[in-house]
Design a protein around this nucleic acid. Structure first.
Length: 335
DNA sequence: TATATTTGACCCAG
DNA sequence: CTGGGTCAAATATA
């Protein structure tokens, strides 16, 4: 481990310690849900920083996940045609390398969701997006096969989002869903989530939120760190306490959400059209975050698990204010 | 018909 | 070489 990456062990320890301390404080907080969120924030920040330190700077790359790289589109699908016979593998060359790199760069995170058998919800696990299955594989040591899904709109809009669904060995009610890449397709307005057709889709979604299990950010390189990620029990969210919160309809509502770090605008539905000004997001923060996308992933994943789509009400992208107050006190704090 | 799933083969990273 | 991820022809479904 030559330290060429330049991460400072001391700093790393510091970050981790800080994270631990915040967690402790969080533990001791019996009230003030807002403060709790704040600490969760800080913990996240610390670990994110620590991760960044570990990864070193050579890994960060990829400042623009959805950038023009895609312009080269998938050489595979294009020149793939006749795979049979001879030829075919003649012209793979550099294009392949390109693609595999791309694949590696795609942000990845996973969620575990439990379903109750008998509700009729079994495989698909609706999450508001439309997926198309493109493969299934038996995984070594796993009892159940893993399903591979990609966004339905890949061809039309080049949306590279994919997910894998793996049923747990011992607990068939638990599905491990790993998402990879952002949705770049437009089609998904929150409407889809907010007013999901009849009931078929609604049920699963609600179920997810009910049991909202855990969400973890996965960097592949450090699985151990990931395993220490946070879980958000169903009740991580109680705005049932008016207390001194001014629960006024418009303004405060937003504030409230933001303050408690549950930005509705990053709900699973909106996150795909996630082209909000990144600059304002990571602007003040150097390259501490591996990449904005990474962070975004965490956020969206979290919200998807703990935030009911019903809460989105009529929130639409149109309402999204580009001047979103990221400067909310405590937001990423000193990140 | 068009669109989605199934499924065996292909390809690449480790 | 092996295992995991993907492709695309065949098949199923609307």
């Amino acid at each position: 481990m030559d330290n060429t990456t330049g991460w400072d062990q001391k700093q790393l320890i510091n970050e981790l310690t800080q994270g631990r301390d915040f967690a402790k404080q969080l533990q001791n907080l019996s009230t003030a849900p807002e403060l709790r969120e704040l600490y969760v924030q800080k913990i996240l920040s610390s670990f994110t920083k620590a991760l960044t330190l570990l990864k070193g700077n050579d890994l960060e790359g990829d400042p623009q996940p959805n950038g023009p790289i895609m312009g080269t589109d998938s050489p595979r699908s294009l020149s793939r045609s006749p795979r049979s016979e001879n030829s075919d593998r003649v012209f793979k060359d550099q294009e392949r390398g390109d693609i595999s790199k791309k694949r590696k760069m795609l942000p990845k995170w996973s969620e575990q969701m439990r379903i109750s058998t008998g509700t009729g919800l079994e495989g698909p696990l609706e999450d508001g997006y439309s997926w198309r299955k493109y493969g299934q594989k038996d995984i070594l040591g796993a009892k159940y096969p893993r399903g591979y899904y990609r966004c339905t709109h890949r061809n039309v809009q080049g949306c590279l989002a994919t997910k894998q669904v793996q049923r747990s060995d011992e607990d068939p009610t638990i599905f491990d869903v790993t998402y990879r890449g952002h949705h770049t397709c437009f089609r998904a307005n929150n409407r889809i989530l907010t007013l999901p057709l009849p009931e078929k889709q609604e049920q699963p979604i609600l179920l997810n939120f009910r049991n909202g299990l855990k969400v973890k950010n996965e960097n592949m390189d450090y699985p151990e760190v990931n395993s220490s990620s946070f879980s958000f029990p169903s009740a991580s969210f109680d705005y049932s306490k008016p207390e001194n919160h001014i629960f006024s309809p418009s303004t405060t509502l937003e504030n409230n959400f933001i303050g408690s770090f549950s930005p509705p605008f990053i709900s699973p539905a909106t996150s795909e059209s996630n082209y909000f000004p990144v600059s304002s997001f990571g602007g003040g923060y150097p390259n501490l975050m591996t990449s904005e996308s990474d962070l975004t992933e965490i956020i969206s994943a979290n919200t998807s698990a703990s935030n009911s789509p019903k809460l989105d009400l009529d929130f639409t992208l149109d309402q999204f204010d580009p001047n979103f107050p990221f400067d909310t006190p405590g937001f990423f704090d000193q990140l």
